[in-house]
Design a protein around this nucleic acid. Structure first.
Lengths: 362, 362
DNA sequence: CTCCGCTCGGGAACCGGTTGCTATCCATGT
DNA sequence: ACATGGATAGCAACCGGTTCCCGAGCGGAG
């Protein structure tokens, strides 16, 4: 009868006070715990709190100066495995540090991003983490710079996570991974197996992540004194469907190659399926490599050789750095390492063969 | 010089008022837009707002009665593909409806869940969405019921999404999908191909989602007058590693079967890899089916026959229903359909053969 | 028997907004 | 010329908390 029968909506601290026969200040103090209160009073108050199922309004507390620290992260689409990994890292670390965690997916729309950052400023979020590559245009830098300043002047902080850094002096924390280096190492590995015509299935050509991986591809060739045939690099996006489409196109064009390097594991997965559909054996006829080392990579058949990116760690680091209190490290820029993980999808080429013959036999 | 030179932290509405030479009320009104203000005043105020880069504190607004609607969802681990899909649906629909979106992953810890729900109550979230199966114990019902009441009395709402429903009368919205039905249809399909010994790789035996799928497996057999060999159902969890381990175990035990039904696509992926490793051909020697229809399922080789679950729609519906204003539909319970999607991993069994012989030959 | 200091609780101001009520100004209508 | 009223802007109260400051009661020391 007593317990929670008198709901009728959220109760205030004054309701509790009235029920306990004390003042609101006293309730606040026993809940705060940092103030001497007689145990009799404490008991009465606690009882009233339980009876009313009272929880102090976090927004009101915030206004009064006792904020619930909050942090936001925005990505394009949480559905992508590598994004999900980062999100997980961010979320874990944030809650470990006692922060609430707001998400927003922009679906690639700049306008959404802008609006969301504005909301976060209104929420007085401790930090806003922008995740994932983007086109590095002047407009991008300008816009992002403005967000950074705006956030900074509100006592908040912008974090760029795997996203093109701004010029120096911007109040921004940047966490990246060695994107180009990973691609370089991977392609070097493929080349070392003896492949000479390796097809590159890239992403959008203005997307910095895609660019970095393509640069690695080129650099690895040049380091061996090779100049890759321009016909061998094709552009799409980072989706599974793009890999499938691009691969089918390459097959139809009767392009000659003995290995394929995909810009992401998703692209590789699509490409692999297209290869299977065309009757091309992987890695027998054609070797295949991916990028990201998403959990699924090892369950592809053959298990995918790829480059490991510490996505979850990236996310964790992003929040730890953003929330790091030391003021001297204000404009940090971190770079995490990547490494290739060798599985079964890349082997030396046959003396003769490759995609063209395999497909025409199929 | 003028612009944003006078940062020094967030500015208040009174700063803006002072700079524009008006009162705080006036600033509030021009920002609110719903009150007649002379255009001269409006201009001065807007200019001050821009100069100071002012954004009203959302928490203060909330206290004053103009809340930013917020909604929370909590899941075990956003890294799982089906969870990610639901998260995406939730997030999309929430922002479409103008809500902010808080996340929390519990890592399976009940304590975390409880604490988070309490925070959400303090935040006055419009709804809290609990995602993913759980053990349906008395303790679970009791605890969840308590959360529901607590939230309800604070004017909020608990949504159970793919999670065991409470008894009637609980102030809860439940969104489920036809878990057992999907499994039934899938196993019926496998049986219809002629398989008689089908191995079931299940999840935790107290987990309701796992139970539902297992019930479907059993029911499909019985509908045909078959009683499956108890040795053919094995329990693990819903991870890729579990599938791998279970499959290896079954192979080592020289269990006889011609088809495998995995409780999730992840489990199927692990099992498939184990099968490949043992030199068993899929679907030649053994057929394989999964559950969830995660995007990756069709890039497995062979492309995985599985049952499609409308996860994203589930998430969208969860928020739409939770936020649905009609008060008559207070204790809603929705059930979404599932359907099997036939790909290449299930074919009729060979006259003789199956896993045992294939493995011993390999 | 005072006086002092400590413990404990209440009143009121404040946080950063919103909004009801009121006062002023100015342009009409007659 | 005066009443009338619409358009604007300001004052002050309020939202739900926290905390500063102060006073009351009480026990021990001098």
């Amino acid at each position: 009868m007593t317990r929670k029968s008198e709901d009728a909506g959220r109760s205030t601290i004054r309701d509790v006070a009235a029920r306990a026969g004390v003042s609101a200040s006293t309730v606040s103090r026993v809940l705060g715990g940092m103030y001497p209160v007689s145990s009799a009073t404490r008991t009465r108050v606690m009882r009233a709190v339980r009876d009313l199922d009272y929880v102090a309004d976090a927004r009101a507390k915030a206004v009064a100066g006792v904020a619930t620290p909050t942090l936001a992260f925005v990505l394009e689409d949480i559905t992508g495995p590598s994004f999900a990994l980062m999100a997980h890292g961010v979320e874990r670390e944030a809650t470990r540090l006692g922060h609430l965690c707001l998400v927003c997916s922009t679906e690639g729309d700049v306008q959404n991003e802008l609006e969301f950052v504005e909301m976060m400023r209104a929420q007085r979020a401790a930090a806003v983490i922008l995740v994932g590559g983007a086109a590095d245009t002047a407009e991008y830098r300008d816009r992002t710079r403005r967000m950074a300043d705006s956030l900074a002047s509100a006592g908040s902080r912008l974090v760029l996570c795997g996203r093109p850094p701004l010029g120096p002096g911007a109040p921004v924390t940047v966490i990246e991974y060695d994107n180009e280096g990973g691609a370089y190492a991977l392609v070097a590995h493929v080349l070392a197996q003896g492949h000479r015509r390796v097809l590159f299935l890239g992403g959008k050509s203005d997307h910095t992540t895609a660019q970095g991986r393509e640069r690695g591809y080129l650099a690895a060739h040049r380091a061996r004194g090779l100049e890759p045939d321009p016909d061998l690099v094709r552009h799409g996006d980072f989706t599974r469907d793009s890999g499938h489409r691009l691969m089918r196109g390459a097959l139809k064009d009767e392009l000659e190659f003995t290995a394929v390097v995909a810009a992401t594991d998703m692209v590789a997965a699509g490409a692999l399926t297209a290869l299977h559909e065309a009757g091309v054996d992987v890695p027998g006829d054609v070797s295949l490599a991916g990028y990201d080392d998403i959990p699924f990579a090892r369950d592809l058949h053959p298990a995918l050789t790829t480059v490991h990116v510490p996505y979850e760690e990236l996310g964790r680091l992003a929040v730890r750095t953003a929330l790091g209190r030391t003021p001297e490290n204000s404009d940090q820029h971190l770079l995490l390492g990547t490494h290739v993980v060798v599985r079964n999808s890349v082997v030396p080429p046959r003396e003769s063969g490759g995609a063209r013959e395999a497909a025409s036999l199929g």
